[in-house]
């Protein structure tokens, strides 16, 4: 700014433009990348020491299975939050999708078709959220609050308010089976995260999701179809919720209209815990996975320690707030550097 003079050779980025070269160890830089992983490792280590039977293969696989549903919901919701949106309806979508899959199976659909029916039901519900949000420009919070209620009502209507238990459910293995010793839901979760990671990091669409969340108007003027991207992320979240609904139904071998009540908040918590900014444009899908695992480890560990349920809630609430507080603190050093970096007060012309 002020220090630049007009010699043609001097256009290069001046030293005041950015922070000094990274020092030997830059805490903020590393925290941004592995900080949440450190929290997870510390938590697991702590649990292994104080919780009886925590560090056994069986228990760890159990934990993995128990978190898979929330983790799959959270993967989808991460797409939405990355665009600065929110989806409160995924818990209800989970219920509707589970009901749809069970009803399809009871109507004689073979396993793949029943599963597809569940996922598709979720995707369609998500698409509805997406259309209302993107093309009618309604606030995502309100739209998904509405569909949360509506879809819960739909789940009750489809089941007459009663669980539909089917002990011969053909896709029950999706909830209870094993693939070479690993629970199927864990395998599904791993596949979901691999695909989500690939899509967000290695495809054009994924970068567009970040761009829309980073600055929607700039994204539009950069040639991105912002509405289509916005619509699609809700469909992704819906399809993920549909998959989670199928797993849930398979796990309990029934269609439960009350399934997934309140799950949307755990999914949002996992994403935020994993470093995804509710302002959009910032976050990593693997962070969300780690966030889900932290929540799951915490819950299981507390149960193993016989901590009363009420106290578990207290502790989980504190952990979520702490994690977000750390997240906001980790940005401080960068902010300070930025101030030094761009000192001359903005003088728009």
């Amino acid at each position: 700014m002020t220090h630049q003079t007009l010699t043609p050779a001097e256009g290069k980025l001046s030293s005041a433009d950015h922070p000094p070269a990274p020092r030997s160890f830059d805490l903020a830089y590393w925290w941004e990348r592995v900080g949440i992983l450190v929290v997870l490792v510390a938590l697991v280590a702590l649990m292994a020491v104080i919780a009886p039977n925590f560090a056994t293969v069986d228990n760890l696989l159990n934990i993995a299975r128990s978190i898979s549903i929330n983790a799959i919901l959270a993967a989808g919701i991460t797409f939405v939050i990355l665009t600065a949106g929110i989806d409160l309806s995924v818990g209800s979508i989970l219920a509707v999708s589970g009901v749809a899959a069970v009803l399809a199976a009871l109507a004689g659909a073979p396993t793949p078709v029943a599963v597809l029916a569940g996922v598709l039901a979720g995707g369609v519900a998500g698409l509805l959220n997406g259309i209302l949000t993107a093309y009618l420009s309604l606030a995502a919070f309100i739209v998904t609050l509405g569909t949360m209620t509506f879809l819960r009502g739909l789940a009750y209507t489809m089941t007459d308010g009663q669980p539909i238990v089917s002990n011969t459910l053909n896709f029950r293995d999706i909830g209870n089976g094993y693939v070479t010793g690993v629970p199927v839901p864990v395998v599904v979760m791993a596949v979901v995260y691999l695909v989500a990671w690939f899509v967000l990091e290695r495809t054009r669409y994924g970068r567009h999701v970040y761009a829309v969340g980073g600055n929607a108007e700039a994204a539009r003027l950069a040639g991105i179809n912002v509405r289509r991207v916005t619509m699609s992320v809700y469909a992704v979240a819906g399809a993920c919720a549909g998959l989670a609904g199928v797993i849930f139904a398979a796990r309990v071998v029934s269609a439960q209209p009350t399934a997934g009540t309140g799950y949307e908040l755990d999914a949002i918590a996992a994403a935020v815990l994993g470093g995804t900014s509710l302002m959009g444009g910032r976050g990593r899908i693997l962070g969300t996975l780690i966030g889900s695992i932290i929540l799951g480890v915490l819950t299981t560990g507390l149960i193993l320690m016989n901590v009363p349920f009420f106290t578990q809630l207290l502790i989980k609430g504190v952990v979520i707030i702490l994690a977000v507080a750390i997240d906001s603190l980790k940005n401080r050093p960068l902010r300070r550097r930025t101030r030094i970096a761009d000192p001359a007060p903005a003088e728009a012309g």
Partner: peptide, 28 residues
């Protein structure tokens, strides 16, 4: 307001409109 993605890297800011030129079989 209309051009920058302030939180994104300079690289992402520059490449955002030309990602389509660097895709092979759907992969960046």
């Amino acid at each position: 307001e209309q051009a920058l993605f302030p939180e994104h890297s300079v690289e992402d800011n520059i490449s955002v409109s030309s990602l389509g030129d660097h895709v092979t079989a759907g992969v960046l």
